[in-house]
Design a binder for these strands. Sequence first.
DNA 1: AGACTTAACTAAACCGGTTAAGTGGCCGAT
DNA 2: ATCGGCCACTTAACCGGTTTAGTTAAGTCT
Lengths: 348, 348
Amino acid sequence: MRAVAVTISDVARAAGVSKGAVSYALNGQAGVSEDTRRRILSTAAALGWTPSLRARSLSSSKAYALGLVVARDPKLLGTDPFFPSFIAGIETTLADRGYSLVLTVATKPGAEEASYRRLAHEGRVDGVILSDMRTDDSRIALLLELGLTAVTLNRPNTPSPFPAVCMDDTEGISHAVQHLVDLGHTRIAHVGGSQHYIHGLNRRNAWADTLQRNGLDHDLFIEADFGAVEGVAATADLLARENPPTAIVYANDIMATAGQAHAQQRGLRIPDDLSITGYDNTEYAQYLNPALTSIGSDPLLWGSAAAQVLLNQLGGTHDGDDVVLPAPGLITRGSTAAPHGRSTPGSN
Amino acid sequence: MRAVAVTISDVARAAGVSKGAVSYALNGQAGVSEDTRRRILSTAAALGWTPSLRARSLSSSKAYALGLVVARDPKLLGTDPFFPSFIAGIETTLADRGYSLVLTVATKPGAEEASYRRLAHEGRVDGVILSDMRTDDSRIALLLELGLTAVTLNRPNTPSPFPAVCMDDTEGISHAVQHLVDLGHTRIAHVGGSQHYIHGLNRRNAWADTLQRNGLDHDLFIEADFGAVEGVAATADLLARENPPTAIVYANDIMATAGQAHAQQRGLRIPDDLSITGYDNTEYAQYLNPALTSIGSDPLLWGSAAAQVLLNQLGGTHDGDDVVLPAPGLITRGSTAAPHGRSTPGSN
DNA sequence: AGACTTAACTAAACCGGTTAAGTGGCCGAT
DNA sequence: ATCGGCCACTTAACCGGTTTAGTTAAGTCT
């Protein structure tokens, strides 16, 4: 077998110093001369020593890990392309800094709070990343109670002591709506996500504001849950109205995809009879028939940035400001066109 | 502030015993009488004491965590609905047993091995779950070298000392092919996933075997990478042939979706001119136009079972046998029908 | 030259558990 | 009665780091 384990004592002995000196040298603290530090570090390297994470954890009361609690209805879990990429982004930052990610999935209502409590109580993590912010999000108070540091994705609507990493939802939706208006649409509906989510709310507001700026009504709104089933129901509701929309802006690609299929089954041609836009620019969006106009966010970047801010916050080197990432842009594809095949008016 | 921390010493003092006795009582070991054990445990409960994970980790050389390394091309990461549900399944088992999941995402070639090495070297985890088994999978030797325990999803093709949790791929594909044969198809192609994966290989073999059993050729095979882009390319290749297939069995829903859209853009009607089947039964599959016939696996169950087996293995209570889960079944939808609108022949 | 800092270390306590080794009391066997 | 053995504990070492409280030698000030 290989050398079982080389400890700080082995290094100290080999370098002819005390354990304490090795610790100082390792952590870049005062207490050893530059010469000695170099000597210690080189003998450490020669012995192939790395400090034990566990021992370090115990004596320094740190976990060297971050937590992410994903709260999702089991049905919606597999559909969202956000998390895998987001997590990959987190990893790119963490791996470099010797941190790990502890992931928890909460599929039942009470499980989310329990997860945070457990992570904090067991000391599994030093901080958590809060995604899917909700209005009056109870997690902020919870984390304060638990003494966990955090970073939030976008700024919550309640006072929060935690830094936020922001990626604006509204710009993309505004572009989508304006794009439809420019094409000549006047009855533009919105199938939103749950309005308990800040981003659900933001997207709706951006839709409404842009319509208002163009002097159009924003009464064609239906709230759904970001899932395909409710996306279909909302679409059915809208299309059954006396004066149905000629375009629907969906809050994500899943609902848009489901809505598009439903409209087609009803005999509508897309985009001629109905224009459709999504959000997320999922991989399959471009392979739908017709390909889906969507808004392409960057979860990888978001994850990487969030992890960085949180680590800096933990290290005390964060300046306290929110970090603002570039807003996702509109990707125009075949699912949007002028209503009833009319050509684009000269606006824009 | 709340009580800072109650330690084993506090409990020992309160119960009038030594630290050791408390430890014995906690871990159900011999060394204390039943009466004393109860007394200790009840004072522990009264004080709200839970043993420190960190201290325990250090002295018992265990991490109380499992690892999962997801190796994926960044482009394919968001598309696969498998992992979120799979992870949720793992969680359901872990949470009950006080374990946590450390997740790593490896997007670059060398990163996967580095991840395993890091998890082992830092002692972050006690064992790992190996998914996406490959032929001659180098991870098995790697984990043996690193001294990590593991469980594999399906049995690898090389000797492996680790227990496997199996969910048969071949049955679903056989059903799909037989279903198409029964509808009257004779030229049934397969767009497979990467043949480096055992499940890519299995699905291809199941397709070929079923055709052979029905006296049909199995020469219409193209290997792709489970991604949409290569799915389209493979479809284009097949449809451009002199004698194109009337049905295509894809190795997953993403490629099937992309292939379907491509065929439709070429002017083919589905299912009349071309039948299509997928694999995974993704959420959006039923909302495609037409809805996609697919094979519905159960990642949640798989994750939960895998975690259970691994924990038992770690605890020494696993019997060493592989666990076999029910094989996923075929879900028939609108994307499959008799070729050229002919009615189903009388078979089956 | 003596008092006082300060740099560069060492020794030992500490984090909060587990566990090997030791101790006293009770029991049955000789 | 006495010895061995076992039960129910206690004591203390240990896991591998961090950190506080010394200690020593050299330098500074007056």
